[in-house]
Design a protein around this nucleic acid. Structure first.
Lengths: 227, 227
DNA sequence: CGCTGCGTTGAGCTTCTTCAACGATCGTGG
DNA sequence: CCACGATCGTTGAAGAAGCTCAACGCAGCG
């Protein structure tokens, strides 16, 4: 029923005509996932891509010893797993629902048809992939060129930004998941939070963060300062 | 003169008609760069994208202390810097010619027009970006989940593959550049090469590599073994 | 011939991880 | 509603991995 309603609000389908939206609607499948449920695994055949309607999804890789690196967290209105639609045919990472989530599924084959008949849709998809590429660049930079305190500082500033550049906000994910996103482990993250608290750069009460010294935090993020 | 000749051989323009190629040819500029010359810097206005005709180009980020992380090395027939054409407007990293190089430059504005009139070109570009995304996923995995010996082992196996799965080959870049690509520094790389030599996993004579124990190398790459 | 850039080696140190124990919190079933 | 278990987070001590700094060899090139 409201599939079409959803579609019309998405950046990916921005500017499309009613008929075009209708055509896309016909190809979509709705899927629900429980918290912790696996959506696909690395190496699975990539039969299509997804779009988050409700909930959140993490896309991640695992090391031989089981360490997890989160590549990206997707929330409502964000498409993911587009890569195998256009290159190769297998998913290059794992995807799991972080909460009870509702997704739309777009089968590869029909989507390719749609995109070929629809230059605007192609442009939107190009924009989406380019955006992702930029985010991956940032992740690479962060992992390789910053130490953990710098990564955490960057993330906190990013979160603050997302909340309207306000100084008080809540972590949007569990700390253990944040550790995985920042390419470290919970113990290390915990110690760094403790140090940042001791220096009165931020105050931490559970998931509640208050930035006390934004300048100090920015210096950390830039690597101008050490903890 | 031979601009059109070049274009017809590229994956990016695969399947296009003669007229379409002609239209693209009209928008292209040829540019030459000397070894070490900067092509663009992070934050520069992204006025278009490039394609390598001859030579090699590294795209990299720099940390506050000047450490370099190479994101990607582009050789002949490979396009780069497409991101600002489709998302945002600034280059997210630096680009420099590693050798004397000849590039084609495609201005953003005219290329967008071309792509909108040309679904096949759009598909090719989507494939190219998706490919890049996959490579970035691998880099993230490698940087975050493998230790340096594992990264080096992976790279050597990749090189061997590229040369037809043969056991003897030459490093295609300087060791200091390899260090930067693997997210480490020359000293560390050198020590690990020495260890791999001592264990008779590979033999190293300057840039000449011989794989002596492929299985051992694969175990290292998978993280099943330590040095 | 000497300079310059690249690569190697050693010693010491910083950062991060590992392993272990413990505390807090939350949801659930009795 | 309480108690329990599970998950999550914190803290300490020890160790590993990689980085910094410094010195030096070597090759290529002006």
């Amino acid at each position: 029923m409201e599939v079409r309603q959803h579609l019309s609000q998405l950046d990916l389908f921005k500017g499309l005509t009613a008929e075009q939206l209708e055509a896309i609607t016909g190809t979509v499948t709705e899927k629900d996932y429980r918290k912790g449920e696996l959506i696909f695994a690395e190496g699975d055949e990539g039969v299509g891509f997804y779009l988050v309607i409700r909930g959140r999804v993490k896309v991640y890789k695992l090391s031989a010893e089981g360490k997890e690196q989160i590549m990206h967290i997707f929330g409502p209105r964000m498409p993911f797993a587009e890569v195998p639609v256009f290159a190769g045919s297998r998913y290059p990472a794992n995807a799991e629902a972080m909460e009870s989530s509702r997704l739309f599924f777009f089968p590869k084959k029909s989507f390719i048809t749609l995109i070929q008949e629809n230059p605007l849709l192609a442009m939107n998809m190009l924009a989406s992939l380019s955006q992702r590429l930029k985010q991956f660049s940032n992740l690479i930079e962060t992992l390789s060129l910053k130490e953990v305190p710098g990564r955490l500082a960057s993330y906190l500033l990013y979160l603050s930004d997302k909340n309207g550049s306000i100084d008080e906000f809540k972590l949007d994910i569990a700390k253990s998941q944040l550790a995985s996103l920042l390419g470290t482990i919970p113990e290390t993250l915990s110690r760094i939070f403790a140090k940042m608290g001791a220096r009165e750069i931020v105050s931490i009460k559970g998931p509640e963060i208050t930035i006390l010294d934004r300048e100090g935090l920015e210096d950390l993020a830039e690597g101008n300062t050490k903890l």
